[in-house]
C-alpha cells in the first residue's frame, strides 16, 4: 500500500533510535469509550503504537489541557461537537497539522481551514415527525418550525446542549442574528413542553403523542431503530425522519473530530492516529457502531443509515458554527429557551 516503503522504514528506524521504547500516543477523548476503544485497538494492531486513553467530558478535558499548558501529556484531543473543537483552538491548546492524507480523506467543509482540527464523523440535526399526525409537505424547513400553526406541537431539548447551540449558530451564519433570534422565539412559543431530556427523549415524545415534531441528531434515531429493546424500535417506527431545507441550503451538519495538542510529545504518532481515524477501516467502524455519516466519501454507510436515503447537507464550513456559539447562547437566554 505504501508509496515509499523505504521512507517508512527509515522513519521507523529513526523512531526506534530516538525513543528506544515502544511508541505510544496519549489521547484525551470525549467520545464514548465503547465507540472509540475498538478503533484504537485496530490502530495499535496495525501500527504497534500503544494508545493511552483518558476519557471525560469535553469541558473537563479542555480545562485540564488549558491548565497543564505545554507540560500536558496529551497528544490528541477528541471531541464530539465542532463547538468544542473550535473552543480548543481558541484556547490555544491545539496546533495546526498539514497532512496530505487528512486533506485527501476529509472534505474541506469538515476541516478547520488552518488545520487545527479535523472532523472524523458527521451527523445531521434533522426533524422527526409523527407519521399519523403530520402530513407530508406540512413541514419541510427549520424555518417552518417558527410558524404559529405548530403551537404546542414541538419537542426539543435544552439549549444547554451543544447540538442546539451549533444549530442556532448555523442559522445565525445563514440568516443573520435578528432572523435567527426571531426563529428561536417562534420555536419557544410553539414548544409542547419545557425542554427536557436528551435527543432520544424528544423522538420518544413524538411517538408517545406529547408533540408532533422534534429536533434531534440522526444517529439517535438510528440507535432506536436498531435497539435491542422493543419499546425503542416501536417508538422509532411511529416517527418519520425528515431532512429539512432540501430545496435550499440543506440539512444542518456537525462533526465529531480531533486535533493535535499544542505540547504533543508524540506528534508523529498523533498525526498518524488522526490519519488512521480518517481512513477506510476506522470510518467503517464509526459508521457501523454509531450510525453516523463517515467523512471519508468512499466509506460505506451503515444499512440503517443508508435506508434514510440520500440527502443534501449544508455546505458551509462547520468551523463557522463554533464562532457563533456564545451569541447563540445569549439568544437562547433572551428568548427563554432553557
Amino acid at each position: 500500500m505504501r508509496l515509499f516503503p523505504g521512507s517508512a522504514l527509515l522513519a521507523a528506524i529513526a523512531l526506534l533510535a530516538t525513543t528506544a521504547q515502544a511508541a505510544e500516543v496519549n489521547v484525551y477523548s470525549a467520545r464514548k469509550d465503547h465507540l472509540l476503544k475498538p478503533v484504537l485497538a485496530a490502530f495499535t494492531r496495525q501500527t504497534d503504537i500503544t494508545v493511552n486513553l483518558l476519557s471525560a467530558g469535553e469541558d473537563q478535558l479542555l480545562e485540564r489541557l488549558k491548565s497543564e499548558g505545554p507540560t500536558s501529556p496529551a497528544d490528541v484531543f477528541i471531541a464530539t461537537d465542532v463547538a468544542y473543537l473550535h473552543k480548543a483552538r481558541v484556547a490555544g491548546v491545539l496546533q495546526p497539522v498539514r497532512s496530505a492524507v487528512l486533506e485527501r480523506n476529509i472534505p474541506a467543509q469538515f476541516r478547520d481551514p488552518q488545520g487545527y482540527w479535523v472532523g472524523l464523523s458527521a451527523r445531521a440535526r434533522v426533524l422527526f415527525y409523527a407519521k399519523d399526525r403530520v402530513k407530508p409537505g406540512e413541514v419541510s424547513t427549520y424555518e417552518d418550525l417558527a410558524d404559529p400553526k405548530w403551537k404546542g406541537r414541538i419537542c426539543v431539548r435544552s439549549s444547554s446542549s451543544p447540538y442546539n447551540q451549533s444549530l442556532l449558530a448555523g442559522l445565525i451564519a445563514v440568516l443573520g442574528p435578528e432572523k435567527a433570534e426571531q426563529w428561536a422565539k417562534g420555536v419557544v412559543d410553539n414548544m409542547a413542553r419545557k425542554p427536557q431530556g436528551g435527543d432520544r427523549d424528544q423522538i420518544a415524545a413524538v411517538a408517545a403523542g406529547l408533540c408532533d415534531v422534534a429536533i434531534a441528531n440522526t444517529y439517535y434515531y438510528g440507535g432506536m431503530q436498531t435497539s435491542e429493546k422493543a419499546a425503542d424500535r416501536d417508538a422509532a417506527a411511529k416517527v418519520g425522519l425528515l431532512f429539512p431545507n432540501q430545496q435550499g441550503r440543506g440539512a444542518h451538519m456537525n462533526v465529531a473530530g480531533g486535533g493535535v495538542a499544542i505540547g504533543a510529545k508524540h506528534r508523529d504518532e498523533a498525526v498518524k492516529l488522526l490519519e488512521f481515524l480518517s481512513g477506510a477501516d476506522a470510518q467503517r467502524l464509526f459508521a457501523e457502531a454509531n450510525n453516523e455519516f463517515p467523512v471519508l466519501p468512499s466509506a460505506k454507510l451503515a444499512p440503517t443509515v443508508a435506508a434514510w436515503g440520500p440527502f443534501k447537507g449544508e455546505s458551509i464550513n462547520v468551523a463557522m458554527l463554533g464562532e457563533n456559539t456564545p451569541l447563540a447562547v445569549r439568544i437562547f437566554d433572551r428568548v427563554g429557551w432553557r
Binding site: 464514548k32 465503547h34 493511552n52 483518558l54 476519557s55 471525560a56 478535558l61 432520544r200
Partner: peptide
C-alpha cells in the same frame, strides 16, 4: 478531570454509559 491515563472507576464507567443516553 484528574485521573491518570487508562484509569477508570465504577463512577466513571457509569458516567460514560449514562451520558450516552
Amino acid at each position: 478531570i484528574m485521573r491518570p491515563f487508562n484509569f477508570d472507576t465504577l463512577a466513571t464507567r457509569t458516567f460514560t454509559l449514562a451520558s450516552d443516553e
